[in-house]
Design a protein around this nucleic acid. Structure first.
Length: 457
DNA sequence: TCTGGGGTCCTAGGACCC
DNA sequence: TCTGGGGTCCTAGGACCC
């Protein structure tokens, strides 16, 4: 069973081609019928317990057991299997605080394996795009599908077909919510997931939706977090249904235009969009250290590594940044907490690691204070433009620029070909400046030849 | 000892200009 | 020099999301 599934994963593109025809037919049939033209339908497809589900695909023994996945440095719990949820383990808890309890209760904890989750995500999104070309990838485990010509009474069957296919091709269980707006599809997805009777698919077009809305608190609505939740409760708005029918002046006063949009969306009027990935506005690269750093040089090496990776991402996306803000900080929970940040504006938008590292060295001198136990460093790029929009300066040393550009192209090529950080700039040190903690990480089953699973006969 | 990383959008207030 | 209104741009901070 497991081997069959793994085989499917490794030869995924092939499966995709074979399957395509089938799904095309489903869609073109609805297009032909032309029913419901104009009524846009959003579908939110969300993977159930995504990181845990990825681990389960390659280790079927985990089925039925409480499993959690930890964040970077084994810091906190970021994913839980349904069994772990049933034990009452809260999301986001610091691992060190409940580690003993987890051991006692037989909960299996994995360090995060983003090479695996990222690759699985890509496969799922590819599968979804075969059902619907108009897809917005919203996060690593969620996508919005947008359909125009599907009769509402077919949504349940279509949802089931998608769900079954994703499960078959990738091994990951998903839930699907349909609705006339993204906010309603999110809410529908929540209902699909929470109530077994819906079997993983729910449509907000159905008549009982108002009844469900009366049973759920406003915090279940996309865009209503803890703070606004509290403010709205104070005004007597407690359920999703009450929010849907709330007085707009009150909403405007409490939450500004963002709140108005949420209410409109709950009433079926689409007004929230999702930014396409090529319009990125900022880019952050940072990481906390397993052990604190006290030393300027070590801290600079860590910072330099983040700048190098960040700049590499900019170049891969063919972008330049107008400004970078470097920052170093102690633990947020330290008695003597410190956060130093230094914005650095480039003479013209840049993707040049060499220039960035030179400026960062100066910048770090201004914010480094001796005596703190630094736990984290990073860089934040803003003012990002496509490279083609960047003007050449008349006063630039074109020769040096050209040379540096060639160096970076070579470095990028080698790193892509061999492995990440195969070639590095000397400022980021000869070995990793900081250690991260990963006590129990699974192999990169799908992205690394050496770690590919073997099936014993 | 040990508490993630990466994003978006909106608003208020200050600087500056006409 | 002072006065006032209106517009733009920028930044920091606050809210949210996964």
């Amino acid at each position: 069973m497991a081997s069959k599934r793994i085989f499917g994963l490794l030869f995924f593109p092939f499966f995709g081609i074979v399957k395509r025809q089938e799904t095309d037919n489903i869609l073109s049939f609805w297009e032909m019928v032309g029913a419901n033209m104009g009524q846009r339908v959003y579908g939110l497809v969300d993977c159930n317990n995504f990181f845990v589900s990825c681990e389960k695909v390659f280790n079927p023994n985990l089925e039925g057991k409480p499993v959690v996945v930890l964040s970077n440095n084994d810091g906190c719990i970021v994913a839980r299997s349904s069994e772990a949820k049933a034990l009452g383990i809260p999301m986001g808890t610091a691992y060190f605080k409940i580690r003993d309890e987890l051991d006692r209760r037989g909960v299996i904890a994995y360090s995060s394996n983003f090479a695996l989750y990222g690759d699985m995500s890509k496969r799922i999104m590819q599968t979804l795009s075969q059902f619907c070309p108009d897809i917005e990838v919203y996060s690593i485990d969620e996508s919005f599908l947008s359909l125009r010509s599907i009769p509402l009474e077919h949504l349940a069957a279509f949802g089931k077909e998608i769900r079954d296919t994703v499960r078959r091709w990738t091994g990951i269980p998903v839930s699907i919510g349909w609705g006339p707006t993204r906010t309603l599809s999110k809410f529908a997805n929540h209902l699909a997931k929470k109530h077994a009777s819906h079997r993983g698919v729910y449509s907000a077009f159905s008549e009982e939706t108002d009844t469900w809305m009366m049973r759920y608190p406003i915090e279940e609505v996309w865009g209503i977090g803890y703070r606004w939740g509290k403010k709205l409760h104070a005004k007597g708005i407690d359920t999703v249904y009450q929010l849907k029918n709330a007085d707009l002046t009150t909403i405007r006063k409490t939450m500004g235009v963002v709140g108005l949009r949420v209410v409109k969306e709950l009433n079926g009027d689409p007004c929230i969009t999702v930014a396409p990935p090529e319009t990125r506005k900022s880019l952050v690269h940072s990481c906390s250290f397993g052990e604190p750093i006290l030393d300027y040089e070590k801290l600079f090496e860590a910072l330099a590594a983040h700048i190098s990776r960040g700049a590499e991402k900019l170049r891969l996306e063919k972008c330049c940044a107008s400004m970078m803000t470097i920052f170093v900080m102690t633990s947020r929970f330290a008695k003597e907490a410190y956060l130093g940040s230094q914005p650095i504006v480039f003479r013209r938008p840049s993707d040049n690691t060499i220039e960035m590292l030179r400026l960062a060295r100066e910048g770090l001198k201004r914010i480094f204070q001796y005596g703190y136990f630094y736990k984290k460093a990073g860089v934040y790029f803003t003012g990002i433009y496509p490279r083609t929009n960047v003007q050449q300066s008349l006063f630039e040393d074109v020769g040096t620029q050209q040379k540096e550009k060639q160096i970076m192209e070579l470095v990028d090529r080698l790193n892509q070909k061999i492995r990440r950080n195969a070639v590095q700039f000397a400022s980021s040190g000869t070995r990793k400046a900081y250690q991260d903690r990963k006590e129990n990480v699974t192999p990169r089953y799908t992205t690394c030849w050496k770690e590919i699973p073997t099936v014993k006969g």
